[in-house]
Simulated assay, not measured.
Amino acid sequence: MDKMNISQLSYSKYCVLTHNSQDYFVHYRPIKNCIKNLLSNPDILKNLMFRYENSKIEDEKSYGEQNSGNWWKRAERSISNHANILSIILYSDATTTDTLGKSSLHPIYVSLGNIPTWRRNKEDAKQLN
């Protein structure tokens, strides 16, 4: 991480533990920077969903996207008409870091539930936190 020289990936380093004279660090980027990067992508912006949709397939309720869930409907009712819900998704996906498959890291990624699933599955719709 320290050797990476990518301006978009400016990380902070914080010592979370010292054990047996060994320091353990977490490398992180403020979550608001990740969200800002996602929302600055015009291809993502044109597909964002902000309002509840009562989706039905053959007269049965469909929960294909986050904004079709009952929790979204309740949350939308509880806020001002001039405000929007921003659904933040945090997830981890183990990454092998050696050729023998014995060492791995667990990076945390950020995405938005406001992005439709088909779009959220593309590389530029997630940020490494």
Results as ranks from 00 to 15, higher is better:
112 L>Y: 02
97 T>P: 03
68 S>L: 00
119 R>H: 11
64 G>Y: 03
76 E>M: 10
33 N>W: 00
20 N>S: 09
31 I>T: 08
22 Q>I: 13
119 R>P: 05
123 E>S: 15
7 S>D: 10
63 Y>K: 09
116 P>D: 05
2 D>S: 12
9 L>H: 07
44 I>D: 02
46 K>A: 04
47 N>S: 13
63 Y>S: 06
77 R>Y: 10
52 Y>A: 03
16 V>E: 05
51 R>V: 05
114 N>R: 06
44 I>A: 00
62 S>L: 11
75 A>C: 14
102 K>I: 10
43 D>N: 15
74 R>N: 13
73 K>Y: 14
47 N>G: 00
29 R>C: 02
25 F>I: 01
112 L>F: 00
85 I>F: 04
58 E>C: 14
118 W>T: 09
78 S>Q: 12
121 N>I: 01
61 K>I: 11
53 E>M: 10
70 N>L: 15
7 S>Y: 02
6 I>W: 04
79 I>Y: 06
93 D>Q: 12
84 N>D: 11
111 S>V: 01
50 F>N: 09
43 D>K: 15
60 E>M: 13
110 V>P: 02
42 P>V: 03
79 I>N: 07
106 H>E: 11
25 F>S: 06
88 I>Q: 05
1 M>T: 09
80 S>N: 14
21 S>Q: 12
65 E>D: 11
65 E>G: 03
25 F>T: 05
91 Y>D: 06
57 I>K: 15
100 L>N: 15
75 A>M: 14
121 N>T: 09
68 S>D: 07
20 N>Y: 04
69 G>N: 14
122 K>V: 02
91 Y>H: 12
109 Y>D: 01
39 L>S: 03
113 G>E: 03
77 R>P: 05
118 W>K: 14
18 T>W: 01
127 Q>D: 02
112 L>E: 03
31 I>F: 03
74 R>D: 12
97 T>N: 00
70 N>S: 14
76 E>L: 11
110 V>L: 04
100 L>F: 12
62 S>R: 10
47 N>Q: 13
52 Y>F: 15
37 N>T: 09
78 S>I: 04
31 I>R: 01
84 N>H: 13
23 D>H: 10
47 N>E: 14
80 S>Y: 06
107 P>F: 05
118 W>S: 12
73 K>L: 14
94 A>Y: 08
29 R>T: 02
85 I>Q: 03
60 E>R: 15
42 P>Q: 09
79 I>D: 06
95 T>W: 08
82 H>I: 11
80 S>F: 02
85 I>V: 08
